[in-house]
């Protein structure tokens, strides 16, 4: 069976000036990422702010050209397709429902635009499919003639989802689709995404900072650090037995609603990573609480101890001796 999406050796660099003193600065925002997903899978992508998640999403969607590597959907290389065919295969849902919808268009126009761009549907067919899509995402027909400003944040995000799905793509890349929404509206949107996935057989890439949300919606989770996946595993394994020290720090930083516990300090220190200056050896070593001398020179890239990707020299595939407390 061919994968719904396959990503091979993807890299993306940004070049720019260094501060006030000139000199070329090369940011390796995506630094060698590969994975493949079957239809219906949901890959949750979590990781530090600035580690390259949005860049990865944009490169996968073809909004930014890769510096190296390729993306295949249903076995077809995306870079060999024109924009229209690409749009039928892969669609985005972005974080900000406020700025991602054109304020001067009606909801019907917004959701109909991808269809119009395809050029091969009549006005009537278009209207029918837009109306069908709006009702699928739980918006009443009366909303079709409204402007984005007349909708709440949650309703706008439904519009963005309707627009992404109207062409019936195979893959949907969601970049923090619920972080601008409150808990209750967020739950409605996640339930909707889960339902649409089941009914339409969609495959999602789901980028989020909210680990509870990722745990809920993902089937597979990748933890990203400085441009690479440092750990990837089925969702239950990752949350129950996180292996990479960065993954463990991430899970230990979750703030559960328990008053009085304060803000945890998980010992990552203050030496934040610079994507233009990736440390040699293990890229996490300057902040790793369990680093050894060899971590400064030996690279853990591509290690799969026990069959799952964990880019850490010290993980041997046996059960970890001191799993972090997953908050109860």
């Amino acid at each position: 069976m061919s994968a719904a999406i396959e990503v091979r050796g993807l890299r993306r660099v940004f070049r720019g000036r260094t501060g006030m003193f000139g000199g070329e600065r090369v940011v390796r925002a995506v630094d060698g990422i590969g994975f493949s997903l079957a239809a219906g899978d949901v890959l949750g992508i979590v990781g530090e702010s600035g580690c390259g998640k949005s860049t990865l999403g944009r490169v996968i969607m073809g909004l930014l050209p890769p510096s190296e590597g390729e993306v295949l959907v249903d076995g077809k290389r995306l870079d060999t397709l024109d924009r229209r065919s690409r749009a039928r295969l892969i669609q985005p849902v972005f974080q900000d429902p406020f700025s991602s919808l054109n304020p001067r268009h009606t909801i019907e126009q917004i959701v109909g635009l991808p269809l119009a761009a395809q050029g091969d549907v009549t006005g009537r067919q278009r209207r029918e499919r837009v109306m069908e899509m709006l009702s699928r995402v739980g918006l009443s027909a009366e909303m079709a003639s409204r402007m984005p400003a007349q909708l709440s944040g949650g309703q706008r995000q439904r519009v963005a989802i309707a627009r992404a799905l109207v062409l019936r793509p195979r893959i949907v890349v969601c970049d923090e689709p619920t972080s601008a929404l409150d808990v209750s509206v967020q739950a409605q949107i996640l339930n909707l995404l889960a339902e649409l996935r089941r009914e339409l057989g969609l495959t999602y890439l789901f980028i989020s900072h909210n680990l509870a949300v990722v745990e809920h919606i993902a089937t597979e989770v990748a933890v990203m650090y400085l441009g690479r996946f440092v750990e990837q595993a089925p969702v239950d394994d990752l949350f129950r037995a996180p292996q990479h020290p960065y993954t463990r720090a991430l899970l230990a930083s979750v703030l559960t609603p328990e008053p009085g516990l304060g803000i945890p300090d998980v010992g990552l220190g203050e030496s934040y990573p610079d994507p233009a200056n990736i440390p040699p050896g293990c890229r996490f070593h300057p902040r790793c609480p369990i680093a050894e001398a060899r971590c400064q020179t030996e690279s853990p890239e591509g290690r799969r101890p026990g069959g799952r990707l964990v880019e850490c020299l010290l993980v041997d595939g046996q059960a970890v001796s001191d799993p972090v407390r997953v908050p109860a």
């Binding site: 808990v183 209750s184 739950a187 339930n191 745990e215 809920h216 979750v254 109860a328």
Partner: peptide, 20 residues
């Protein structure tokens, strides 16, 4: 109602819809 819809990693049931 608000306190009931907080999802907590490692503690929520994945098959059930999130509370809202």
């Amino acid at each position: 109602g608000l306190l009931e819809c907080i999802p907590i990693p490692g503690a929520s049931r994945r098959d059930a819809p999130l509370g809202s």
